[in-house]
Design a protein around this nucleic acid. Structure first.
Lengths: 339, 339
DNA sequence: AGTAAAAATGTTAGCGCAACCATTTTGCTA
DNA sequence: TAGCAAAATGGTTGCGCTAACATTTTTACT
């Protein structure tokens, strides 16, 4: 036999009907142990592998979960992905992953492509999808989770935390520690980074409103559209130092890559951390806790977010629940030596 | 209309036959501009999205590329993935990604699952697949690339470099710099790590054979099955220092995570790098170049490997070539301050 | 043993699309 | 304008599987 064996071949060899073979594969408990054994032997003998396309077509269940992240290179989404994969494991689900490179338009195209797989659900990052993308998803009628940040108008389900609040909290932390000339170092400037910056600005504004003149805070904001990296952190530190004429006494980096870069660069500039310069980051990467001094950062349960996204998706797909309020997973300030 | 629109619905609205609509989607150049326009309008109006399962079943082309990596958390495979995604982009191909957690058995199961998607090709990491997995792949008759390391008996195609040679070269580098009490810090101990260790042992053996007694090299090997992390690097450094009673003057870490951890720990132990202790790593992560001192490491073209894997796969799938000798992409020693 | 219920198995039909081959239309040359 | 090749389009069929219903066999209990 040259062509690949199909259900019928297995059925003939096992001496049962095709549907019985099908059942062995999908509802093994609905088949008598005796037949099941015969079928399993036949499958093994022929090296039969089910044709997923045919199965999906006949059952109109694809067994596919679509995931779109903004970047493969940002480790942050790696953690989320791991959560997703770990949650998916017990189920017969394949993950199809797309990278939209932080572009809503690319994301829109990806959504259109991925929808052709008729996925059981879709996990998106962030909340700034295009109108057309939202329409596509509405029509598709599949459960959707928007992950990482919170929104008032979710497409469907929503799990995340407030990057605005986190940015504000970190800035308050710096203010509370006595820093008054605080730089904000931002790269990429995707929506979540912008929210962190907004939180920073808000915290500074509130502070300056409440404090008498001599204690007021001078912010220095340096941002770039470049994607963030450790190296860039050093460059941005130099930039903010230039802009503040060396007055800057703390920097709030929009993520830990920049913060690490700033820390390494500070050393080379002979700035003592935190005596001359405090450094705060975001995302709480492993390295941040282990460098000396440790970098103060914002931690969030990324792995758990990924897991929970899958759980909610499947609950909704199974029709177990349908009232899903946005889930705020919160964040925490990991205060360390750098501030 | 409640159900999702299908080809026929589009065809009726556009006033053409179903097959013409199909052609607009797959061979747009085979359709007159006039019909194409009508069809495109109808598609937009109905929000039609092609059913991938039906398409795959009818055409027996899945448009899927399967990829199995040993770990999502290891950034190294991230780079490879990025290469794969970048190479896949111009084609109508979806990537289905599996994580086998460094387990050949899990990999075997994953292969069986992924084969049911009838992928156009499969990219595997490493070369230690189970016999049954190899048989499955032989039967499947799809192009396969084994990535990252080289082997004499590839399943099909093979792209990578010699981790043995790289381990040996790095050890030679340390010996040439005058270090004689060299520790090898290994975590996870997957096949590639073992090859690096074998290269290390070989280099030491060769050295000791050629050198007179007083110049001979004393190796200290400390390994663990735990998965590697920055933190673990520090712990392993302490372990090797204990084992060598503080005599160790250089450590070759099986990857840069460990090396960074070793560097951070060395600082806390008041060891000057490289005066008291040299540190070498593997993989050349971004941070390794930017810490102070920079960590000497082994660089390899991971992104390019991913890209090339896709290219070869597609060439073979299109039948353009079939004689694929293993591709050695090589490596290079990035000598930095740490050694 | 007899009966009803439950479990196991089979039959039929169709999921949505594209390959194949047949037919119609178009564009071009003499 | 006829005639022909090439381009465009359509009809039929089947890809491999499973849902829904139909039938048979087994089980449990009187």
């Amino acid at each position: 036999m040259h062509r690949k064996p199909n259900l019928k071949d297995v059925a003939e060899l096992a001496g049962v009907s095709a549907i019985t073979v099908s059942r062995v594969l999908t509802h093994p408990d609905k088949v008598a142990a005796k037949s099941r054994l015969k079928v399993e032997q036949a499958i093994a003998e022929l090296g039969y592998i089910r044709n997923h396309a045919a199965s999906a077509l006949a059952s109109s269940r694809s067994g596919v979960l679509a995931v779109i992240i903004p970047s493969l290179s940002n480790i942050v989404f790696n953690d989320v992905l791991q959560g997703i994969y770990s949650a998916v494991k017990p189920y017969q689900l394949q993950v199809i992953l797309g990278d939209c490179h932080y572009s809503p338009l690319e994301e829109e195209k990806l959504i259109a492509t991925l929808l052709s797989q008729a996925p059981e659900g879709l996990i998106l990052t962030g909340t700034d999808q295009t109108d057309y993308a939202r329409k596509l998803l509405q029509n598709a009628g599949i459960p959707v989770v928007q992950l990482m940040e919170l929104t008032d108008q979710p497409i469907d389900m929503n799990i995340g935390f407030s990057h605005f609040d986190a940015g504000k909290a970190m800035t308050d932390h710096l203010l509370a520690r006595g820093y008054r000339r605080i730089g904000f170092l931002g790269a990429r400037m995707d929506p979540r980074t912008q929210q962190r910056l907004a939180g920073f600005n808000q915290a500074v504004a509130v502070w300056n409103e409440q404090q008498p003149q001599p204690a007021s805070c001078q912010p220095y904001v340096v941002t770039t559209g470049q994607s963030s990296s450790i190296k860039l952190g050093g460059q941005l530190l130099q930039a903010v130092m230039a802009e503040s004429q060396g007055q800057c006494d703390a920097v709030f980096c929009c993520n830990d890559d920049l913060a690490l870069g700033a820390l390494f660069a500070a050393r080379k500039m002979n700035l003592r951390v935190p005596a001359d310069l405090a450094i705060a980051g975001f995302n709480d990467l492993e390295a941040s806790a282990l460098v000396d001094p440790g970098i103060t950062s914002v931690a969030s349960p990324r792995f758990a977010m990924g897991q929970q996204a899958v759980e909610l998706l499947l609950q909704k797909a199974r029709g177990e629940r349908c009232d899903f309020a946005p889930v705020d997973v919160g964040f925490s300030i990991m205060a360390r030596g750098s501030t």
